[in-house]
């Protein structure tokens, strides 16, 4: 997914250039065949699978009217779920920004036995089905689990079925986003500046904060945002370890499911629409971030 994410960066760059060049016409002439066929198929498929169903969601919640919609998404329980989902995703994304950077740093800068294996393992959360991650984490961190028991006995710290458990699940699924966005930038960082800094007498710490950090910051922020966005929508890995307590450990996607289970279709659609809106905004911010990154990178 991150691979695809950086792919989209490239796609965006190229098309930004080409579209500007082809403004007067709908399509620039080309000798290649198949434009009508492929565009037609793409649009129909996109329309049927993605756009029509999403329109149904918005249509359903629009049935409430603006005031009804507003009332549905501002009940204390929904607001609390927003708070839980966003707050814990934020915490998880911050954890990932720190440790994801550490992992990327270690993978790029150092050599150690088993490095390639570790590198491959980083993508595990992308490949491992979320339900499997959910039951595994829940078994590990439950009060009678491998990690949960010592934490409980030594520190009285409860992880599973508390907000902390949710944060851990979100950290698990979000980690590769940060590593995979930071890693290539770190790899391409030219050594000259660091060498110059070192020869001018700067310490490693100074070189790090003055040269390395500014260079990778855009990538780090992008990885952070990707990890955050994924966390807000995550369901499978969280529900097994979340306590599902309204206002405390009830995440937004679960609230949608609960509303469905209570025959509250319009309410579920309203919360879904609100989340969709938030996703749009985040997608927008991500695109801006990536543009910012490209301009920094091109500098």
């Amino acid at each position: 997914m991150v691979a695809a994410g950086s792919g989209a960066v490239a796609a965006g760059r190229e098309s930004a250039v080409t579209v500007r060049a082809s403004l007067p016409l709908f399509r620039k002439p080309s000798v290649l065949p198949g434009f009508g066929l492929t565009l037609g198929f793409t649009l129909s498929y996109l329309g049927f699978i993605v756009l029509l169903p999403l329109a149904a969601l918005i249509l359903k919640s629009s049935g409430l009217g603006w005031s009804g919609f507003w009332a549905a998404v501002t009940t204390p329980r929904v607001l609390a779920a927003f708070q839980v989902s966003f707050g814990l995703s934020l915490a998880a994304a911050l954890t990932n920004a720190i440790f994801g950077f550490l992992v990327a740093w270690v993978l790029v800068r150092y050599d150690f036995p088993g490095k390639r294996l570790v590198d491959a393992l980083v993508d595990l959360p992308f490949a491992l089905p979320t339900a499997v991650a959910g039951i595994a984490l829940s078994a590990l961190y439950a009060p009678n689990g491998w990690i949960g028991r010592p934490l409980d006995e030594l520190f009285g710290l409860k992880v599973a079925f508390t907000p902390l458990g949710i944060a851990i699940a979100l950290t698990f699924i979000g980690l590769p986003f940060v590593v995979r966005t930071v890693q290539p930038i770190l790899q391409d960082l030219p050594p000259e500046e660091e060498e110059a800094a070192a020869s001018l007498g700067a310490s490693r710490l100074q070189a790090f904060s003055g040269i390395i950090l500014p260079a990778i910051l855009p990538a780090l922020v992008t990885g952070f945002a990707l990890s955050f966005a994924r966390g807000v929508g995550e369901y499978g890995s969280v529900i097994f370890i979340a306590g599902n307590m309204p206002g405390l450990t009830e995440i937004l996607p679960l609230l949608i499911v609960i509303k469905l289970e209570q025959y509250d279709y319009a309410g579920a659609a309203a919360v879904g629409t609100a989340m969709l809106g938030v996703s749009f905004v985040m997608l927008l911010i991500l695109n801006l971030l990536q543009q910012w990154m490209r301009s920094r990178h091109a500098r």
């Binding site: 009678n144 599902n244 307590m245 309204p246």
Partner: peptide
């Protein structure tokens, strides 16, 4: 402390977790 969506979920919470 927590509400599962079904009785079986609660039993698992209490007996297993």
């Amino acid at each position: 402390p927590m509400l599962d969506s079904g009785a079986r979920g609660s039993t698992v919470t209490f007996t297993q977790r």
